[in-house]
């Protein structure tokens, strides 16, 4: 059963930035997703839109 958060727990909760830095798997997700979307997928989308030369 989940434990209910008390006011004290909320007050002791680290800053969101600290929680991000302390979460290695969220960092893995961000570090792989960002370049995959912005560099690879966006780039490949542009290449696929280059018209073929007339045969």
């Amino acid at each position: 059963m989940a434990r209910q958060e008390t006011d004290k727990d909320v007050g002791a909760r680290p800053h969101v930035m600290q929680r991000l830095l302390d979460n290695p798997f969220l960092l893995v997700f961000l570090g792989v997703t960002m370049p995959t979307v912005l560099y690879l997928i966006w780039g490949i989308m542009e290449i696929t839109q280059i018209p073929l030369a007339p045969s």
Partner: peptide, 14 residues
């Protein structure tokens, strides 16, 4: 935070 900037942006320099 500087390392976080690497995680988010460094690969894009490719």
């Amino acid at each position: 935070t500087a390392f976080l900037l690497y995680i988010l942006f460094l690969q894009l320099a490719s």
